[in-house]
C-alpha cells in the first residue's frame, strides 16, 4: 500500500502534471501559462528520475526509455529548429552558417537513435531494462519508424498538391519517409543487437494497430467536438454581415500582429 502510494506520487502524479501543464498552455492568462510551465518542468524532471526512485514499478521502464531516447530526440528537433531559423526567412534568429550544422545535428540524432537498435556499443544509451529489452522501446521505435514512413510519405504527396514553393519540401519529405521505411524493412529482415527480426516484426505489426487506433480515436473525438462547434458556428452571422471593426478592436489586432512579427523596427 505504501509502495503504491510512492509510485502514485513519484511516477503518476508527475505524468499527470505534464498533461495538466499542456492543458494550461491553452489558457489566455500568461501567469497561468507560466505556472503551467513550472508544473510541466517539475513533472518532467520527477518522471525522468522515476526509474531511480520507484525502480520496481513496471511503468518505470517508460521513464528509463525516455531518458535513453532524450539525447537523440533533442538532436533531431533542435537540429531542424536551428536549420529553420538560420534560413533566409524574415524571422531569422541564427547566423546562416548554422543551417548546415542544424541539418547535421538532425542526421546525427537520427543516426544515434538507429545505432541504439543496431549496435550494443556500451557508450550508447541503453535499450534494456531489468536485464531484458525495454518493453516500451519495442513500442516506441516501431511506432516512430512506422509513423515517420506513413506521415512523411502522405505529407510529401499532400504538400506536392499545393504546388507553390513546395517542390523541395515535398522531395525532402518523400526522401526522409522512404529512408525511414527502408530502416523499418531492414529491421524486419535483420536481427538487431538485442532483438531478433521476428520480435521486431511482431512489434511493428502491433505498432500498426496502435497508430491506427490512435488516429481513429483522436479522429472520432475531433469529429464529435467539431460537430458541436459547427452547430454553434453556423448560427452566427456571415463575416460579410458583421459591422466593421471599431478603433479599440483595430488597436488590439495591431498589437497582436506586432507581437507575432519578428525583425527590426524599421522593417
Amino acid at each position: 500500500m505504501v509502495y503504491d502510494l510512492r509510485v502514485a506520487l513519484l511516477l503518476w502524479a508527475p505524468l499527470g502534471l505534464m498533461f495538466l501543464s499542456l492543458g494550461l498552455q491553452f489558457r489566455k492568462d500568461t501567469a497561468v501559462q507560466r505556472v503551467g510551465k513550472v508544473l510541466g518542468i517539475a513533472g518532467l524532471v520527477l518522471f525522468s528520475v522515476s526509474f531511480l526512485t520507484v525502480p520496481s514499478s513496471p511503468s518505470a521502464a517508460s521513464s528509463a526509455l525516455f531518458v535513453s531516447i532524450l539525447p537523440s530526440l533533442i538532436l533531431m528537433i533542435f537540429g531542424l529548429y536551428l536549420a529553420l531559423f538560420s534560413g533566409e526567412i524574415p524571422v531569422r534568429r541564427f547566423d546562416p552558417i548554422m543551417r548546415p550544422i542544424g541539418l547535421l545535428l538532425f542526421v546525427l540524432g537520427f543516426a544515434l537513435f538507429e545505432s541504439m537498435h543496431w549496435s550494443d556499443f556500451s557508450m550508447l544509451p541503453s535499450t534494456t531494462w531489468d536485464g531484458e529489452t525495454n518493453r516500451f522501446w519495442m513500442v516506441f521505435r516501431p511506432t516512430f519508424l512506422l509513423a515517420m514512413s506513413s506521415f512523411l510519405l502522405t505529407g510529401g504527396y499532400l504538400v506536392h498538391l499545393v504546388q507553390k514553393r513546395t517542390t523541395q519540401s515535398s522531395l525532402a519529405l518523400y526522401a526522409t519517409g522512404l529512408c525511414s521505411f527502408m530502416l523499418l524493412m531492414a529491421s524486419v529482415f535483420f536481427d538487431g543487437s538485442s532483438t531478433t527480426a521476428e520480435e521486431f516484426h511482431t512489434s511493428v505489426l502491433l505498432a500498426a494497430s496502435d497508430v491506427l487506433g490512435f488516429v481513429a480515436g483522436v479522429g472520432l473525438s475531433i469529429l464529435a467536438f467539431g460537430l458541436t462547434i459547427w452547430q454553434f458556428e453556423r448560427k452566427r452571422p456571415q463575416l460579410n454581415q458583421l459591422p466593421p471593426p471599431n478603433q479599440q478592436q483595430l488597436a488590439k489586432a495591431a498589437e497582436i500582429v506586432q507581437q507575432n512579427l519578428g525583425g527590426d523596427d524599421d522593417e
Binding site: 517508460s62 526567412i89 513500442v139 516512430f144 509513423a147 497508430v211
Partner: peptide, 29 residues
C-alpha cells in the same frame, strides 16, 4: 503509459514533418 509513449513517438514525427516542410520552404522562397 502506452498512450504516452505512442503520443511521444507520433508527436515527434509530426514535429519533424512540420520542421522539414518549413526548412525547405524557406530555401525555395
Amino acid at each position: 503509459i502506452h498512450f504516452t509513449v505512442t503520443t511521444l513517438a507520433i508527436g515527434t514525427v509530426v514535429s519533424i514533418l512540420v520542421l522539414i516542410l518549413f526548412v525547405n520552404l524557406g530555401v525555395k522562397e
